[in-house]
Design a protein around this nucleic acid. Structure first.
Length: 218
DNA sequence: GCGACAG
DNA sequence: ATCTTGTCGC
């Protein structure tokens, strides 16, 4: 990827293939968390994919990959920074997940094509994103109970859901990426977060990519 | 025009 | 994202 203009052009082209207005095709069994860790002194990055069995939340497989950040962090273009190393890690999997859970956003994005949408389209696997902080959109107050939520609205579109995964704990931002809708993304996020604020998938992926980075850095 | 801005 | 200690709670 050369520059921002080219990246935006690529997004607009890939966006034509995004599907988020229909529920997940079949009941997911294997759900994978994906995440990337960055080094401070170098441009090394580590990506991880951890596959869990949705019913038991047991880890089925963990793979990691090391790479070089080939694109700067630009809000709205995060995918170009994280997808290369994630695809490298995904290629090492011996099982095929039914769903990918990303750190970040799906269609709740300036051009409706965030990391989760991008990864979903290039892999052909259903995907959605769970963000920890606000990016775009507005929303009303969310009840204090676990499971409470409010629609995430941008313009005249509902692009996601602000969901409380734990009682009295800051909510997370859920948005579909590809081959799944808002409702399904939120429902699965809640199932993946029985005890902590973040889904077990992202918790596992986060620790895995950090460990992988630390192994090559220090 | 001026900020804000996933990770 | 990453830099960082102690501290409150289960």
């Amino acid at each position: 990827m050369r520059d921002e203009a080219e990246a935006v052009a690529v997004q607009l082209r890939l966006r034509e293939r995004v599907v988020t207005d229909a529920p997940l095709g079949r009941a997911p069994r294997l759900v994978a968390g994906v995440d990337v860790a960055y080094a401070e002194g170098s441009d090394l990055v580590a990506g991880a994919v951890v596959v869990l069995e949705l019913d038991t939340l047991a880890v089925v497989e963990t793979v990691t990959a090391i790479g070089v950040a080939g694109f700067p962090y630009v809000p709205g273009l995060l995918a170009f920074r994280e997808i290369p190393v994630l695809e490298e890690a995904l290629s090492k999997l011996t099982v095929t997940p039914d769903l990918l859970v990303c750190d970040g956003y799906g269609i709740a994005h300036p051009r409706r094509f965030g990391l989760a949408s991008h990864l979903g389209v290039v892999t052909g696997i259903a995907a959605f994103g769970v963000g920890k902080t606000a990016f775009i959109g507005t929303h009303g107050q969310v009840g204090a109970d676990r499971g409470s939520w409010a629609p995430l609205v941008d313009g005249d579109e509902i692009v996601g859901r602000v969901l409380r995964t734990q009682k009295n704990v800051k909510p997370v931002f859920v948005s579909p990426g590809h081959l799944i809708d808002v409702e399904g993304s939120a429902e699965i996020t809640l199932r993946l977060s029985p005890k902590y604020r973040l889904p077990e998938t992202t918790r596992h992926a986060d620790s895995a990519c950090r460990a992988a980075l630390k192994a090559v850095t220090g």
